[in-house]
Design a protein around this nucleic acid. Structure first.
Length: 630
DNA sequence: TCCCCTTGCCC
DNA sequence: GTACGGGCAAGGGGAC
């Protein structure tokens, strides 16, 4: 083969190798115009393996993480390839101007490729799907499509990838910072694959038990709801089973029947055109909730009460205050929705997606999905939004002979916020308690007089401000968090905040100017954010989020190399934005401080970036502060 | 059956 | 005059 740059694309029977999906063919193209397409066979994989280990070659994929992972399942040692591996998805995300990163749009945008043809395989799957299921008892995948279509698509893809690589590589590598980011992202591919491959261990029996408890709650609360509002007249139909998730039909009808006047609407889609639909989210529902039940709702969520305990106290309250059925309605709707959510989003997935014998759950982490640079997690389950208090974390357990260690960047987004605003007073306060300090400023009280609730309010405002919130949104968030705040109160606090910390608005103004002049802003790692000027208020948040994300990525790459170079058994298993979960082998616990120091950064930023450590020897829900026990 | 909307979980 | 950042997934229900 003459070409030294070779693009490769594998076609697979699906997206999840842990569900048995595999490569069935692949194609390539070189910068000298050579190309080929072949079915998977022992020989063709051996040939590809040799290519991937030719140190004179540059191999390019579009979304290399995916192809490499699939190749791993063909027995290729992807972690020690000799060829130089590149990825046009990462390149295009780093160069980032458009919001679309599938190969078709990129090829059109950067390579002027014609994309008027529809994707013929997708069309084929759509046209023949139903018939196929009838004949084969399963939906068709790419392998079932006519091979000429697959070949055509595959070759189109490798050609586009090649053009894209040539167009983008220099744009990224000419910039020193972007080039470094690119190298980190390429390492992160392997970290991610390793992490996904290791998976997390779940306790299926516990998930079954907790699911049963929730189901009891749903049954009990559902009976109550039905007895309160059914039969319910919806159009011509008499509904006898009320759906608490139906905010379009059932909830408005139920409120009407109970004689509760509706007050809150969702944001209209087209401003002014439409006044929005009735809203029944937690914020609105709490406004309709009876005063004797509000505290119960708050405490039960805060403490993560099991449904039976909630129900006991709830029944007692109802009796004590002689509440009518209609008084209980909003609270019951909220509670049943919590239970439904726990079952369908968490317990069902934990049970359906973990491997029955081993209890291992393989999630997917995507390092280049979020525009800020954060990871996202999905498929088959999002491992980054597991509830902290209400049960599911009990199902995540340690593997035998390991402990799970949680390395948490302490207040990291807050620190970067101060870093960008360069606010000296805040910087000083962050070492002690930033939320109390902000409370002293906005309430104009000495810190001894700050109540727990005022601190919590200040905390809500701090995060709201980082996210670019206005007074209304702050009121909403605080109320949802169990701190009832009206819009007037929120406005006073909001203004008081900006009077105390003028540096914050100054920073946003600077960002706006920079966007006006250059069209983008960059974080300290050189990651660029193209933001339209009228959305400049997002800039500060992108910087905080993105800086924290890039710091985490660098750390992960370092830690992963450290573990590998030293031949350690311990594994990175999860990342939740500013938290890294490492499964530490029982006999390797001495590396915990080392990992901490690989993550911390005392030099580069306005404030030292430090790490807190927690550890669990049993369940995620049981994690506690780490004390040196070496 | 597909897709939008609403809701709700995480940081 | 304006307004909570980034994600993912599920259920309901209208559109086709």
């Amino acid at each position: 083969m003459e070409g030294n740059i070779i693009t490769v694309d594998t076609e697979t029977t699906g997206l999840n190798p842990y569900r048995g999906h595999r490569i069935f063919c692949w194609g390539y193209m070189t910068d000298k115009g050579e190309y080929g397409f072949c079915s998977k066979s022992k020989e063709s994989i051996a040939w590809l393996k040799k290519l991937l280990n030719d140190s004179t070659k540059t191999i390019v994929f579009h979304n290399a993480k995916f192809d490499l992972k699939m190749l791993m399942f063909e027995g290729i040692d992807i972690f020690n390839l000799k060829a130089d591996i590149h990825c046009t998805l990462i390149l295009s995300k780093l160069y980032s101007i458009s919001g679309k990163y599938n190969l078709r749009s990129l090829a059109q945008q950067y390579c002027n490729r014609d994309t008027t043809d529809k994707d013929e395989i997708i069309l084929w799957l759509k046209r023949n799907g139903r018939q196929f299921v009838k004949e084969n008892g399963r939906p068709p995948n790419f392998k079932d499509a006519p091979i000429e279509l697959v070949k055509k698509r595959c070759l189109w893809d490798v050609e586009s990838t090649l053009l894209l690589f040539i167009a983008l590589r220099k744009k990224v590598t000419w910039d020193k910072e972007l080039s470094k980011l690119y190298d980190t992202e390429r390492k992160i591919m392997y970290v991610c694959i390793d992490m996904e491959n290791t998976g997390v261990k779940v306790d299926r029996a516990r998930a079954i038990k907790l699911k049963q408890e929730c189901k009891w709650g749903v049954r009990t609360l559902q009976k109550l709801l039905n007895s309160i509002v059914c039969p319910l007249q919806i159009r011509e139909e008499k509904v006898i089973d009320f759906k608490a998730n139906s905010s379009a039909l059932h909830l408005p009808a139920a409120f009407k029947k109970l004689g509760i006047r509706l007050e809150y609407r969702t944001k209209p889609k087209i401003i002014g055109k439409n006044e929005g639909k009735w809203s029944f989210d937690r914020y609105s529902m709490l406004q309709y909730t009876h005063k004797h039940l509000i505290k119960l709702m708050r405490v039960s969520s805060e403490k993560g009460w099991k449904i039976k305990d909630f129900y006991k106290i709830f029944a007692a309250q109802v009796k004590k205050y002689r509440l009518k059925k209609k008084d209980c309605f909003p609270a019951i709707v909220l509670k049943i929705r919590e239970q439904i959510k726990l079952i369908s989003t968490y317990y069902d997935n934990i049970l359906n997606e973990s491997i029955v014998n081993t209890g291992i759950l393989h999630g997917t982490f995507n390092p280049s999905q979020a525009i800020t640079g954060r990871f996202s997690s999905s498929n088959p389950i999002n491992l980054q939004n597991i509830p902290r208090l209400s049960g599911p974390r009990e199902c995540f357990i340690c593997r035998d002979n390991t402990v799970n260690v949680y390395f948490d960047y302490k207040q990291v987004e807050m620190k970067f916020f101060v870093h960008f605003a360069k606010d000296k007073l805040m910087a000083k306060a962050i070492e002690e308690d930033i939320h109390i300090y902000v409370a002293t400023q906005i309430y104009k009280l000495p810190k001894e007089q700050i109540t727990k609730e005022q601190r919590q309010r200040a905390k809500g405002i701090n995060f709201g401000i980082i996210y670019g919130a206005g007074p209304n949104k702050i009121a909403e968030t605080l109320t949802k968090d169990g701190l009832p705040t009206n819009e007037y109160e929120a406005r006073v606090l909001f203004e008081s905040y900006h009077e105390s910390f003028p540096s914050v608005q100054e920073t946003t103004n600077k960002i706006r100017l920079k966007l006006l002049r250059e069209g983008y802003i960059s974080n300290p790692f050189g990651r660029r954010y193209h933001i339209p000027t009228h959305l400049a208020y997002k800039g500060l948040n992108y910087l905080c989020q993105g800086t924290s994300a890039d710091l985490m990525k660098e750390s992960m790459a370092r830690i992963w190399s450290f573990l590998n170079v030293n031949g350690l058994k311990s594994k990175i298993i999860q990342t939740i934005h500013d938290e890294l979960i490492v499964e530490i082998a029982m006999d390797e616990q001495e590396i915990i401080p080392r990992i901490k120091s690989l993550m911390e950064d005392h030099k580069r930023f306005f404030l030292p970036i430090t790490v807190d450590i927690s550890v669990s020897t049993s369940r995620w829900s049981e994690k506690e502060e780490w004390k040196i026990t070496l």
